[in-house]
Amino acid sequence: MKERFTYFSPIGPLCIEAEDGKISSLQFSDRELTSENFDPKLLTSVTEQLNDYFAGYRFEFDLPIQPSGTDFQKKVWNELLNIPYGQLATYGKVAQMLGDKNLVRAVGGANSKNPIAIIIPCHRVVGAKNNLIGYAGGLWRKKWLLQHEITNKPDEANLW
């Protein structure tokens, strides 16, 4: 059974869905979803970790996730989890991490279908010249998330 709730972030509502105790979707929305049957323990963990992330002192998530997608998409999303907080990777770099520099467009396609925003940090992937391109939540959110991470990065290094 799908469980749903809306988390109110500084950059808009996040609609979160879970199945079998694992997060299956976290997407930006312009409207609030009616909360339904969300496991209280998971709800507490998700809320605390997102609160900490947006407060600037959580640098990685420790939540059970189960994104739905093709085997290739899941490989891409697993690579995205290796991009450190406050750092950028190009689509080409992610393709190289997968072992084939010719997969740039396929990586972009998989990145655009990421069902679990923020936790699977697709916002850290940028164009070849570090330009901000493509983000399902809107480029202004991508820019906000990157600036938030760069500003709160533990070593306080500013990449921009």
Rank of each mutant, 00 (worst) to 15 (best):
V107F: 08
F28H: 13
L132S: 07
K74G: 01
R124E: 02
E32K: 14
A157Q: 15
I116H: 01
T70Y: 04
A89M: 12
P13Q: 02
W144A: 14
P154K: 15
F72N: 04
R141L: 02
L146F: 11
V125S: 00
F38I: 15
I11A: 10
I116C: 10
L42A: 06
V126A: 04
L33W: 14
P64Y: 08
L145V: 03
M97H: 04
R124V: 05
K113S: 12
G109W: 08
H123A: 07
Y57M: 04
Q66T: 01
I118Q: 05
L139A: 02
A128F: 02
G86C: 02
I120W: 05
I118K: 06
V126H: 00
A95G: 06
L103W: 09
L146V: 06
T70D: 08
L42M: 08
E17H: 03
P154Y: 08
G12Y: 09
L26M: 15
N37L: 11
N152M: 06
I119Q: 05
K142Y: 07
K101S: 14
K2P: 11
G137N: 01
E48R: 07
W144N: 05
F59G: 02
N51Q: 11
K142A: 11
L146M: 14
L159G: 00
P64S: 09
W140H: 11
N51S: 10
N111K: 15
H148W: 13
G138H: 09
Q73S: 13
E48G: 01
E3K: 10
D155P: 10
V126Y: 00
S24F: 00
L33Y: 14
K41D: 14
F59C: 06
F54P: 00
N130W: 03
K129D: 13
T151G: 00
Q66G: 07
S45Y: 03
P13D: 00
F28K: 03
K75V: 03
D20H: 13
K129E: 13
K75P: 01
L88H: 13
V107N: 05
S68G: 02
I150R: 09
H123P: 07
L103Y: 08
Q147N: 13
F8E: 08
K129M: 08
A136L: 04
A89K: 14
S24M: 05
T6L: 02
D30A: 09
T34S: 12
Y57K: 09
F54A: 07
V46Q: 05
A95Y: 03
E3Q: 15
K113I: 07
R124H: 11
G12W: 12
F59W: 13
I116F: 10
K113M: 11
L88P: 02
S45H: 04
N130M: 09
W160T: 10
L132N: 07
L132H: 05
D155N: 15
N37W: 06
V94C: 01
V94R: 01
K75R: 14
G127H: 11
T151W: 01
G109T: 05
R31G: 11
W160P: 09
S25V: 11
N37G: 12
K41H: 12
G99W: 11
Y7H: 05
T47F: 05
E48I: 03
N111V: 15
R124S: 04
N78E: 15
